[in-house]
Write a protein that binds this DNA or RNA. Structure first.
Lengths: 121, 121
DNA sequence: GTTATACTGAACCATATGGTTCAGTGTGCG
DNA sequence: CGCACACTGAACCATATGGTTCAGTATAAC
């Protein structure tokens, strides 16, 4: 109906589907951090954290820059506007679904059918 | 900072991370459908579609009810309000990050450091 | 009663995910 | 120079994911 379902949603929603990664975003919102910083904070190996940062970076949620031997992570260009819009749109149809006459009729028919079946046993 | 990072985000974001599943939600917004309906529409086996519906159901995005031999799927109780709020909050901090003096100083320091390194080569 | 339909469950498969260790490489510091 | 530190990459592991087929079971239709 209103929804568009963009291909980059796969990466962004998948990136958000992990608590550690949401935590990293949370942390980066407070200030930039190195991979080591994040790794120690989330009690994980450097390598493990680097993978998470890689996922976030691929989704555009984080950018990184290596200066000397430390790679600094900061919030990236993706501000999740499309994702926000998709969810907002979803909520809108959700509301509509149960406020229209169609929705009510749907519901009544469903119940009627279920009732009928039960009685016939 | 503002974020809360609820545990059920894992399931809901993971559920949204698949194009087929977003398509199913899209479809259910247009009207209820059986597993068969969805399977044929998304060119997939019944079994495959049932798994997707299971994921959506576990995330609370869909509810199903079996009447006779057909299982009808409809939009579920999860309206993604928390997820919406999380993303909205994220965007807010994102904005703040690059409008505060802190952000600007951060950025300048970063550039200065990078410049210094480049010259020292 | 027979047959077709709609789903269900188990088993399987390939690939992805979330983590590790280990062995480098490159950089900074004394 | 020499050592420590920050990261990187490869290899590995267990489990999850997204799909399939195949063999049921229950229900609807004739």
């Amino acid at each position: 109906m209103v929804q568009y379902n963009l291909p980059h949603f796969n990466a962004s929603f998948a990136a958000l589907a992990d608590a550690t990664r949401r935590g990293v975003l949370d942390q980066l919102a407070r200030g930039n951090a190195s991979i080591s910083d994040l790794a120690s904070q989330f009690d994980m190996t450097l390598t493990g954290m680097k993978k998470h940062v890689g996922v976030l970076e691929a989704a555009g949620l984080v950018t990184t820059e290596k200066i000397g031997r430390v790679r600094t992570c900061r919030l990236g260009p993706c501000r999740l506007e499309d994702e926000l819009a998709w969810i907002a749109g979803y909520r809108q149809v959700w509301d509509a679904r149960f406020q229209t006459l169609d929705g009510v009729i749907d519901e009544l028919q469903r119940r009627e059918k279920a009732r009928g079946r039960r009685q016939r046993r």
